[in-house]
Design a protein around this nucleic acid. Sequence first.
RNA 1: UGGGGGAUCGUUCAAUGGUAGGACAACGGACUCUGACUCCGUGAAUAGAGGUUCGAAUCCUCUUCCCCCAGCCA
Length: 563
Amino acid sequence: MSGDDHTSGDFIRDIIDEDLRLGKVDSVVTRFPPEPNGYLHVGHAKSVCLNFGIAAQYGGRCNLRMDDTDPAGESMEYVESIIGDVKWLGFDWGDRLYFASDYFEALYDFAVELIKRGEAYVCDLDAEQIREYRGTFTEPGRESPWRNRSVEENLDLFARMRWGEFPDGSRVLRAKIDMASPYIVMRDPVIYRIKREPHYRRGGDWVIYPMYDFAHCLSDALEGVTHSICTLEFENNRPLYDWFVERLIKKGTRPRQIEFARLNLSYTVLSKRVLIELVRRNIVNGWDDPRMPTVAGMRRRGFTPESIRSFCAVIGVAKNDNLVDVSVLEHCVRDDLNERAPRAMAVLRPLKVVIENYPEGKVEELKAPNHPGKPEMGTRRIPFSKELYVERDDFMEDPPGKFHRLAPGREVRLRNAYVIRCERAVKDEDTGEIVELRCTYDPETLENPPSDGRKIKGVIHWVSTDHAVAADVRLYDRLFDIPEPLGEGGDFADHLNPESLIRLFPCFLERSLNEAKPGVGYQFERLGYFCLDSKDSKVGMPVFNRIVPLRDSWAKIALKGSQ
RNA sequence: UGGGGGAUCGUUCAAUGGUAGGACAACGGACUCUGACUCCGUGAAUAGAGGUUCGAAUCCUCUUCCCCCAGCCA
């Protein structure tokens, strides 16, 4: 099942249903409002699916808005990556790509209005003083000595702030609310600061920038957003959100903020700060490293947009803090790929096999289905010859009873080909390493079970040595080796999984994989899902990423046996 | 510590006064030219204590635990 369209009610949809029923709103408008100072990750994907999913379900609209009110760290590179990622996830915002930075003039006017109402003032306290005046959780704050400037003076000062008369940090505009409020955010919050940092879109147009609490709610209102969905940490800010909106928005439906719990995923991190650090410290190879939980990383890894949407639907939406196990994500990826991925054979850790009774120089083109459950996906031809590669793991010199693979004297089915019997293993005289298997085949067993009725339990994959395509294969695993790398203090870097990337070379792929395209997942039978790497593949030297391994119940059995 | 939120199988989401259910994970079995997929089955939860009610995860009271807020970040 790869359906991501089951949108059974969550508490947000309940609220919307109620707002609709009571006539509070007559249509639904949402928005996805990233700040372009980093790449989107799977946590953002949850929000994207929520916002766009709700808009689609209610026949409404969802805007894509860059929340670019702090020029430090923001860039066009991030804007472009965000646009590409949301699009790739399968969502469409029509012509409604908006930028908070396009609202700077309107926002400035709102601030002026607030000053005129006597509800905002220019404060000359510096950052440290403002903090001291703010009070603590248990003690109320004190009023700024600049709190009661006249409207005229505030108007004049704010205009001069805008035109660059004052140095950075020397003054701020504050809302005049309540220095004793138990909501810290209501204690005369700063709404404009002076910051001479060029804006990636506005250049040096502005030296003052609005703060989130001021800009976000008003941007929502300007866009006609009805339901402003954000994460739980903004719950404390909701009174301030409403305070601005009530005062400054007179017409139309006022936006309503609803908070939900952000996604946490085990064995990885979804903190923008940490993700940036992983990139900067070269712990990973860029934002799109296939181990990254970024949308770009998952895309390069080979995850499908359908699987990510399905994941977002399956995990649900609530207000509980959560830590979703990555196995859920992996399940969604397998579930989708199992349906769509063509099958192929590839040997990752090759061991040579010589079929002693197979004619020298003979090549048969054997027929293989591209998907055992879907005949409509067709068949392909696979060359078979006297010399093959099989997986080293598929041979044991002295195997336990439950091992259904090759061992001296044992028979297995070669997938899509013959039953072979291992006669002996050839070892390197010096090292004792097994370098080759000598086998015989049963010519009657192509597309047939053995005629004498003997049961062949094992089936292994293989590739003809002369026809194989050499490739570089990268096995990816979780980035961290503990479920919560940011759990109890310490450095997350101490918990990196040393096996998060394993490079295998040379691996041998069946010939048909020469036609593989990046982004298209293949199932390498008995191994997992793989796709051609979009960046590092070269003509003549393909690079394949392992998207996710197949479930491996033998590994469990083997593990138990060894314990 | 003031305030804002939250507690349901191992994890996650449901149940909106009427049989606590699904998914993932785990375990057992069947099937199998992928030890995959699929199918069948098993175990597994209402934070605690009181109260209201014929009946409480749900309503009330108290308690406990967890998260968030004292950036001129978002």
